[in-house]
Design a protein around this nucleic acid. Structure first.
Length: 1181
RNA sequence: ACGGACGUGGCGGAAUUGGUAGACGCGCCAGACUUAGGAUCUGGUACCGUGAGGUGUGGGGGUUCGAGUCCCCCCGUCCGUACCA
């Protein structure tokens, strides 16, 4: 009987399904193994041969582990929410649920054809309410959690609330300091907290929740009508669809992934993931160590109003007037009255204040002991931030500042005067004491303070409470400070630097165009120029900005600031080489040590100071990190690392900076203004978001009349009728694609659980994914969120591990081989159609032309854009004559469907019959020595070929490139076993390679030969005769190689080994059971159908799936003799066979005694003889 | 620019991790069987040379008895990030 894959594959697929052969029980008596494939999105295009590559590999491992006694969880499901289905719905009006259903059915059919050992009873779909109920539930847990930085874990928000009620909150509690949102939230006492109304409490809590609503800069994609996460934007355009993306500020649900930045980096070390993925994640998180440096602004020339004075300020950062025109600040964004600090620098000031509190002068400490508590009849705060100052002591209700001069204040007389003036402007009075006074006559000082306080009216009484209730949208300052003045005086510019050692090389400071201080510090006479620049810079799209990175642009603000070490004035510039989204959005420019600063300085003629010894700063900056610092200050002569430490110490001493770790990672935008996603389980009461009670879950996706935004720009969910909870409006954005895929591995463990996302028993048994297989394109998206949610669930005690997948293997892409042909168009007029953008060339200039598939032959226009790609004209040929009546010609390469090509030749008629070909029905097709036009072939000479030859091009396999190979076609021709083997045989799993259907014959022949080992003259015939030593050797060598190769996922070499075995057994004419039966089991993971069929024919009645894996036996592999390669000076010259047991000395003697060796030695004695037993003999002459 | 991966016949790729470079498959060549072959089987196939022999793992240097493998420099390809301070 001939090997007939069609028949046996159908038979077994049916039987496996009926028998539920691959059903997995949570059988805790067996060791577990969890193999997971990345969640596919069921696209309308179906699977191509590239998709199953990873699934086949993981299926082999899953089957192998089953043979080895493991209980294997190997599930599959669908990430079925997503943009394409929704785009399709918008175009066609078809409900995305419906198209998704159809696509899934198609996927399932294709997957079934390849015989994956998935337990389909565990299938999950993210768009199934029974599934997304738990996605919503996890969202609520995130909403109800905060990150405790001291404990380094997420905790329930109720614990934070309790803590607020007991001890209030202070910025130095460090609980809100995450990489992204440097919460500029002032301190409050327990009493204050308890007195806040619910709305205020909720507002404050938003700053701590791990899922939170805030106004944030987002990637807005107008074409898709939604916000995108950073990893969904590539090269300034959307990853899906390639639409332009712009920066926009709007209220937005976010995930505080930044809280986990450090743990996400640290966790990588223990993972068996590829270096490239780990590195990509590290870069994406982008940790850098350095310092925060504070530059104090010098007197501005003319004050201009600060943004804060224009109205209610969000707690986080300010918005410029333009942006406020677009979006309303969130209604809950309002500051409590004790937050007297300047908005721009509050967070930093509070950190400085905290440091200063730790290290008071003697006088300060003595006085504090007298003033603390309520001993003076009111609350005194010390080292409190007011505007941009940190005052020593203050009574806020009485608006009285108490300062102790001494220590670092001594040399600041002039500044003290300015400070007094400023504080007076703000409504504070100030009394000063000297160190001397406090130390020698403390009681008198305290008495003076008490008397002064008692004499002052209480400014605060009743006011705070009133402020909480005011509508922040009204232009009311929430500050208790009356009559705030204006101007840049007293402001600070914070910069982040990794090279504080180069501080003495600072010659200017540059702000990003969107920096909030730009508007504040610019004096009136420079205002027009600066704002014009800022507006121009902001309006450039991300893409434009990325395009001309080389161009230097910027403008001087007119303001200067003070160098913290030298005290010199340094000009403040605005430049778009500084990114608003990184660090503080401001840099200290060291043109001698940073190339970008150097470029900027050179362009604008700013001074450049050398920072390192031996640097030639006339041509470029010296960025070496192994240099010696040469500045005139205290860093001179230090090596960079020492200088960095020293500089930071000095900054901290002078309260002008501090050590700082910065992360590039931003919080992840979570809301999508789209329909086809999980509804966010949030409702609003008086504008404050609250989580739905668990009993309301799942919050089902409502029906809408159209999948488009409403007329006033609300997301599609706003169209739904009754979209409210007990009359309170529900959130209208939906979750992003990555929500459902961030935890799906847990659901597979217990997919039908209605009470919990998965039972603790199931989680405890299955634990982490042992092998995770998928594409490397998810490096900074899915794989980061996946780890983030896992860590969160661990923190909250729902699971007991904090990494989702121990081992990750990235399968390479299978590329397509596109076929292209040159086509030309002739035209009556110089028509440049939209889809054929290119250059039309006057026909009189064009003779015969051909297209050469080589970039060398490209021609370019003046702007360097390739024109009429690869067209070469030869005027002597009479092309013109044949196209009389036309006057222009245009040529291009087009992809043609691979189905219309045979042996590199295009079948024109077939092509013109296809959808794509019909577009080119009027085109001129270029033939080797002529052309084909509307059925007529014109040849230049008789010898020319009449064929339209195609040019192969390896690129991504995709529908639009017409190069897709469908696995179904391969399977119907050769069977699934052949497909599986061939995909594995192509090369290492991690490597990308082009699909070449030609090679598949070899693997098919192999299966047929394997089948034939069980047959003699068409009759199934397997003998029970004992195998010979040679036959056993083939078997055991194969078992050894295959077992080891599967363990290291080297499937291409195991397939080779099977081929070798079959060839050798064929030569030996071996038909013996004791060889063939173990071999069949070994082949089963790769080619399950043929193995199962032969297994049955061998007389077994149970599936081969759980047959124990055959062990190899070394005894069959040992050889008696070894054929030594004998080399002279490393070059192999001959082979000599010696017994394995022969020791090195005897081998050497035997070799030297050999006549041929003697001949080669020409009588000379060898200088040296190296004998490596069982390896090689090398004779040095 | 930085980071990662990689570079071996006409092609996909092997190479026990420092020990006979090119396993296995495709393709190609020759032969057998055949009316026929795009079926099957057998043999050959890195390159140059009739041969002896020589040359060969992107290029150049080095370590070593011995290098595709280790070290240094350079070139090239692919992927990721991209003015990250």
């Amino acid at each position: 009987m001939q090997y007939d894959p069609k028949e046996i594959e159908q038979k077994w697929r049916k039987k496996w399904k009926a028998d539920k052969t691959y059903k997995v029980e949570n059988d805790t008596t067996k060791p577990k193994y969890y193999v997971l494939d990345m969640f596919p999105y069921p696209s309308g295009a179906g699977l191509h041969v590239g998709h199953p590559l990873g699934y086949i590999a993981s299926d082999i491992v899953a089957r192998f582990k089953r043979h080895n006694g493991f209980n294997v969880l190997h599930p599959m499901g669908y990430d079925s929410f997503g943009l394409p289905a929704e785009q399709y719905a918008i175009q066609t009006g078809q409900h995305p649920a419906k198209t998704t259903e159809v696509n899934i059915a198609r996927y399932r059919e294709q997957l079934d054809n390849i015989a994956f050992s998935f337990d389909w009873d565990r299938e999950v779909r993210t768009s199934d309410p029974a599934y997304y109920k738990w996605t919503q539930w996890i969202f609520i847990q995130l909403f109800e959690s905060w990150y405790d930085h001291e404990a380094q874990r997420a905790r329930p928000i109720t614990e934070l609330i309790a803590r607020f009620g007991e001890q209030g909150w202070h910025p130095n509690d460090a609980c809100a300091l995450t990489g992204d949102v440097e919460e500029e939230l002032g301190a409050f006492t327990a009493n204050e907290w308890n007195a806040f109304d619910d709305r205020t409490k909720q507002r404050i809590l938003q700053h701590f929740r791990l899922a939170y609503l805030s106004e944030a800069w987002v990637n807005w994609c107008p074409a898709l009508g939604t916000v995108l996460a950073n990893d969904e934007v590539k090269d300034g355009v959307s990853e899906r669809g390639g639409h332009p993306v712009e920066r926009k500020r709007m209220p937005q649900w976010s995930m505080r992934i930044t809280a986990y930045a450090q743990r996400l980096i640290d966790g990588l070390d223990a993972l068996e993931w590829s270096d490239s993925i780990k590195e990509a994640q590290r870069n994406w998180i982008g940790r850098s160590e350095g310092a925060l440096v504070r530059f104090k602004l010098k007197m501005p020339l003319t004050p201009s109003p600060s943004p804060e004075e224009r109205g209610g300020m969000p707690l986080t950062t300010s918005t410029s007037a333009e942006e406020r025109g677009e979006v309303k600040p969130p209604s809950w964004a309002e500051r409590p009255g004790f937050m007297t600090a300047n908005v721009g620098s509050a967070g930093k000031l509070q950190r400085f204040a905290r440091e200063m509190r730790k290290d008071p002068t003697e006088a300060e400490e003595k006085l504090w002991q007298q003033l603390r508590g309520y001993t003076t009849g009111g609350r005194i705060r010390r080292q409190h931030a007011i505007d941009t100052f940190i005052v020593d002591f203050v009574s806020l209700p009485k608006c009285l500042v108490i300062e102790v001069d001494g220590g670092i204040h001594d040399d600041q007389q002039a500044e003290d005067a300015a400070r007094t003036e400023r504080l007076n402007e703000l409504g504070f009075d100030l009394i000063r004491f000297t160190n001397e006074e406090v130390l020698t006559d403390l009681p008198r000082v305290v008495d003076t303070i008490k008397a002064t306080l008692a004499a002052r009216p209480d400014h605060k009484a009743g006011k705070d409470q009133q402020a909480w209730n005011e509508d922040p949208s009204e232009e009311v300052s929430s500050s208790p400070l009356p009559g705030r003045g204006a101007g840049g005086e007293g402001y600070f510019i914070d910069v982040f630097t990794t090279r504080p050692d180069t501080l003495f090389g600072v010659t200017f400071v540059t702000l990003a165009p969107e920096h909030e201080l730009v508007e504040v510090i610019t004096p009136a006479e420079r205002r027009n120029e600066v704002m014009a620049y800022v507006t121009a810079a902001k309006n450039r799209s991300e893409r434009d900005r990325m395009a001309d990175v080389k161009k230097v642009s910027g403008v001087f603000t007119g303001a200067t600031c003070i160098h913290p070490f030298t005290g010199k004035e340094v000009p403040v510039w605005v430049g778009d080489y500084v990114l608003g989204g990184y660090g503080t959005g401001a840099v200290m420019a060291v043109p001698g040590g940073d190339q970008r600063d150097w470029n900027f300085a050179t362009h604008f003629g700013l001074p450049i100071i050398a920072v390192t010894e031996g640097a030639d700063i006339s041509k470029e900056a010296d960025e070496r990190k192994d240099a010696i610092i040469c500045s005139e200050g205290f860093l001179k002569g230090l090596a960079v690392p020492e200088a960095i430490t020293r500089a930071i110490d000095e900054l901290e001493n002078r309260a002008a900076g501090e050590r700082r770790i910065n992360y590039r990672l931003r919080d992840a935008a979570f809301g999508r203004q789209r329909y086809w996603g999980e509804p966010i389980p949030i409702y609003y009461k008086e504008g404050v978001p609250y989580a739905l009670p668990e009993s309301e879950l799942p919050l089902k996706l409502p029906e809408v009349d159209k999948f488009l935004p409403t007329e006033d720009g609300e997301p599609p969910l706003a169209r739904a009728a009754n979209w409210n909870y007990n009359g309170h409006p529900l959130e209208t954005t939906t979750m992003p694609g990555w929500a459902g895929s961030s935890w799906y591995f847990l659901r597979y463990m217990d997919p039908h659980n209605a009470d919990r996302f998965a039972s603790p028993e199931a989680i405890n048994y299955w634990q982490q994914v042992d092998l995770y297989m998928g594409g490397s394109e998810h490096a900074t998206g899915h794989l980061l969120y996946f780890r983030f949610w896992t860590k969160f669930l661990k923190d909250r005690g729902y699971i007991n591990f904090d990494e989702p997948a121990k081992k990750l293997v990235n399968q390479g892409m299978i590329q397509g081989v596109s076929q292209t042909v040159a086509v030309a168009y002739v035209s009556l007029n110089k028509l440049v159609s939209e889809e054929n953008r290119g250059v039309w060339i006057p026909l009189k200039d064009a003779g015969y032309f051909e297209i050469l598939n080589s970039p060398k032959h490209m021609r370019f226009n003046d702007d360097g854009v390739p024109i009429a790609q690869t067209v070469i004209f030869e005027p002597e040929v009479k092309f013109l004559r044949d196209f009389e009546g036309y006057n222009h010609v245009y040529a291009q390469e087009v992809n043609v469907p691979i189905q219309c090509i045979e042996d590199g030749v295009l079948n024109i008629q077939a092509y013109l019959g296809t959808v794509e070909g019909r577009k080119h029905i009027d085109a001129v097709f270029l033939v080797d020595g002529g052309y084909w036009h509307k059925g007529n072939l014109t040849l230049r000479d008789k010898a020319a070929s009449k064929e339209v030859r195609t040019h192969p091009l390896v690129e991504k396999m995709s529908k639009s490139k017409l190069n897709v190979v469908n696995p179904d076609d391969i399977i119907s021709k050769y069977g699934a076993d052949t497909l599986r083997l061939y995909e594995m045989f192509l090369g290492p799993i991690e490597q990308s390679k082009p699909w070449d259907t030609n090679g598949i014959e070899g693997t098919f022949r192999f299966l047929r030969k394997f089948w034939n080992l069980f047959y003699e003259s068409d009759v199934f015939s397997v003998s029970d005769e004992a195998p010979t030593k040679a036959e056993f050797k083939v078997l055991h060598a194969t078992l050894k190689k295959v077992t080891e190769d599967i363990e290291k996922m080297s499937f291409n070499t195991s397939v080779s080994q099977f081929m070798i075995a079959v060839n050798e057994l064929g030569t030996l004419k071996c038909h013996k059971r004791d060889v063939l039966e173990p071999l069949t089991i070994a082949l089963a993971p790769f080619a399950p159908h043929i193995a199962e069929e032969l297994w049955e024919k061998l007389g077994h009645t149970t599936s081969i799936t759980t047959a124990p894996w055959p062990k190899w036996d070394e005894q069959y592999l040992v050889e008696d003799n070894f054929s030594y390669p004998i080399s002279f000076n490393g070059k192999t010259r001959l082979q000599l066979e010696f017994p394995i047991a022969l020791d090195a000395k005897s081998v050497e003697a035997a070799v030297l005694a050999n006549p041929e060796v003697q001949l080669r030695l020409e009588g000379k004695a060898p200088k040296k003889v190296i004998v490596v037993p069982k390896r090689i003999v090398n004779i040095v002459v």
